[in-house]
């Protein structure tokens, strides 16, 4: 009897393996968990794109939920994303931009051309804040709640179809 069951063993191993491999087929290989989920937004002291003399820090993100979008004028998908960001800001989300590894005049020009969804833009020319946020490809979007905790991260550009998805996260953490 036991010998009969042993004969079934390779089959069972096969079934187990097939299950995991089949599941693997539907996984997105470029999906990454964010290390920042549930963590405080990193501290920083930087100027804003609008005012070179201004100094802002992480307290900017306290007291109100904000959607922080990392963008750059050299990033083509950021242009594609602007209409969606404008739509989100029209729906009452406070938008904060991080102008990542960019030059001031180019960043400003970009906003003039493609729209201004952001209440303020943190100017991060060296990409230091981006590094603290674990940014590896622009655009990236972080949802930061009123206590300054990162609640959601979206890597890559927000497609028109994903606006509702992002809005649902905004309402969830409100």
């Amino acid at each position: 009897m036991i010998r009969r069951l042993l004969l079934l063993l390779p089959f069972l191993v096969f079934v187990g393996l097939a299950f995991f491999l089949y599941r693997g087929l539907s996984l997105d290989p470029s999906a990454r968990e964010s290390a920042l989920w549930g963590q405080e937004f990193p501290s920083f002291t930087l100027s804003t794109l609008e005012e070179p003399g201004a100094e802002v820090d992480e307290s900017l993100l306290r007291g109100r939920m904000s959607l922080v979008n990392v963008w750059a004028s050299w990033c083509p998908t950021c242009k594609e994303e602007m209409p969606q960001l404008l739509a989100l800001s029209e729906r009452g989300v406070q938008m904060v931009g991080i102008n990542y590894k960019d030059a001031r005049d180019l960043g400003r020009q970009f906003l003039e051309e493609f729209g201004k969804p952001f209440e303020v833009n943190i100017f991060d020319p060296a990409g230091d804040l981006g590094f603290e946020l674990g940014v590896y490809g622009v655009p990236e979007t972080f949802l930061v709640d009123a206590n300054g905790i990162v609640r959601y991260k979206h890597v890559g550009y927000i497609t028109p179809a994903q606006v509702d998805e992002v809005m649902a996260e905004v309402e969830k953490w409100h």
Binding site: R32, E33, S34, A35, L36, F131, E132, G134, Y136
Partner: peptide
């Protein structure tokens, strides 16, 4: 590095 970019 893992704290910023994830376990990945």
């Amino acid at each position: 590095m893992a704290n910023r970019f994830g376990e990945f």
